[in-house]
Design a protein around this nucleic acid. Structure first.
Length: 426
RNA sequence: GGAGAGUUGGCAGAGUGGUAAUGCAACGGACUCGAAAUCCGUCGAACCGGCUAAUACCGGCGCACGAGUUCGAAUCUCGUACUCUCCUCCA
């Protein structure tokens, strides 16, 4: 949620920022006009309420003194009706403001490429050597199926498209990968969490998925109560502190969690239809940070670094990009994506997305800390994948494949595989 | 799933129709070389509006949340959420 005071104070600046995210200037004008209306009504209704309070006090005194107060009561009856009418109007206008405001995305940070075109995302740097093969590298799903460690067909029978069975060494590789990720985060000081995977609407609202992006998720309705399968562990991790004032001494606070992520992938029909890249259900290790506003840009760097570290230890080539304003997520002020090299696709593919959401989520979810003056202020929230597990497995299969169809296990994962160094056909 | 009890400020805890006691904590001051103790005073979350140089002042709101009754609701009515206890069920 944006701070309406900022829109009020710097409308032109806000319009320019939001234009880079595809928001029309008229939207801002509309919400500011409503805001003007709202404040007029507030002044009127509060004046009447102040009067009512005073007179009610007089009525109370009169009653105690056993005096007659019918005149005042009669007058206040009218005031009460007027107040009720104005309050109704106020509620309506406030609702309209909320409707617009909660659908406006975060302001992009100053160093973000201002463009609606995702091709204008900026490459920051590359790491690692892109592997060369003296044979034609296979796609990870071919490797997996040939080795008998991934089964998409049976998953389609049991569930549908975009699901998978990991089998034997495949399942153990997936487990090795996420255990490795979690252990590394633990060493970096993250607090590990196992969270709920079903969350309520307030939580989805708090992290910014609702009300705008209801089609992207799976929901379950039970006894009139709506629950959503988490699209990312960011939701339960950030909402952990919803409605709380965090002890400032604890900041910055860092959490990590492994969870399945459920996504309907509405609108992505035909894209990445084969393999592990785009699934309805996939495992992801997520990192979330809460910090003071002045620390959030530094913490974003830390987040990116912690995600990069995993790829470096796995020996996977990648690059880091800063997403263009129009391509970043709704809640993000700045997003750095890590894209890992996939030999069969001959290109980099996203494996981590690290965002500074500034106070956008904190304002929605009511997450604060007390500043040096003891006054509650919104924290900044950050989130990043560390990393998407399925895509990491895909990258390992493709980058570490051998001519005979076997796959070498990256050194750091060998202990996690019980000493196994290579996956061969069973 | 069934029955009962509860939800008031940072914490404890009164308040059953007249507009949130009291204690602790916190903050300021006095005393003191300093501190503790004591004494005096201030402060009741967060939020919104007005006026501002202002974190000053004025007002609104505010007793889990939402709606209703009333001139007036923490208090009465209805609904919802959550917590606790007991029973039932269950990995």
């Amino acid at each position: 949620m944006l701070d309406i005071k900022l829109l009020r104070q710097k409308p032109d600046w806000a319009k320019a920022k939001l234009a880079a995210r595809g928001v029309k200037a008229e939207k801002i004008d509309e919400v500011l006009a409503l805001d003007e209306q709202r404040r007029t009504i507030i002044q009127e209704t509060e004046g009447l309420k102040a009067k009512r309070n005073t007179v009610s006090d007089e009525i109370a005194k009169a009653k105690r003194a056993k005096e007659d107060a019918t005149e005042q009561i009669k007058a206040m009856r009218e005031v009460g009706q007027q107040v009720g009418k104005l309050d109704g109007q106020l509620k309506q206008v406030s609702e309209q403001i909320k409707q617009i405001l909660e659908r406006l995305p975060n302001f992009p940070a100053d160093d973000v490429p201002m463009s609606l075109n995702e091709d204008d995302s900026r490459e920051e740097y590359k790491w690692g050597t892109i592997p060369t093969f003296d044979f034609k590298p296979k796609a990870h799903f071919e490797i997996g199926e040939d080795l008998g460690i991934l089964d998409f067909e049976r998953a389609a029978k049991v569930s549908g498209a975009r699901f998978v069975y990991y089998i034997g060494a495949g399942a153990r590789l997936e487990r090795a990968v996420y255990n490795f990720f979690l252990d590394e985060h633990y060493k970096e000081g993250y607090t590990e969490m196992i969270t709920p995977y079903l969350v309520n609407d307030d939580s989805m609202y708090g992290t910014g998925q609702f009300p705008k992006f209801t089609e992207d998720v799976y929901s379950i309705t039970n006894d009139d109560q709506n629950m959503t399968l988490i699209p990312t562990a960011e939701v339960p991790l950030v909402n952990f502190h919803r409605g709380e004032i965090i002890d400032a001494a604890k900041l910055p606070e860092s959490f990590t969690a492994l969870s399945p992520a459920f996504r309907s992938e509405a609108g992505s029909a035909g894209r990445d239809t084969r393999g592990l890249i785009r699934m309805h259900q996939f495992n992801k290790v997520e990192m979330v940070k809460f910090c003071k506003p002045e620390d959030s840009w530094h913490e974003l760097d830390n987040l990116v670094h912690d995600a990069e570290d995993l790829l470096q230890k796995l020996g996977l080539a990648y690059h880091v990009i800063t997403l263009a304003s129009g391509d970043a997520s709704f809640t993000s002020a700045k997003t750095n994506d890590l894209e890992v090299w996939l030999p069969a696709q001959d290109r980099y593919r996203e494996i981590s997305s690290c965002s500074n959401c500034t106070d956008f989520q904190a304002r929605r979810a009511g997450i604060k800390y007390r500043d040096d003056n003891g006054k509650p202020q919104f924290v900044h929230t950050l989130n990043g994948s560390g990393l998407a597990v399925g895509r990491a497995v895909a990258a390992i299969l493709e980058n570490y494949q051998n001519a005979d169809g076997s796959v070498t296990i990256p050194d750091v994962l060998v202990p996690y595989m019980g000493g196994q160094t290579v996956i061969t056909k069973a």
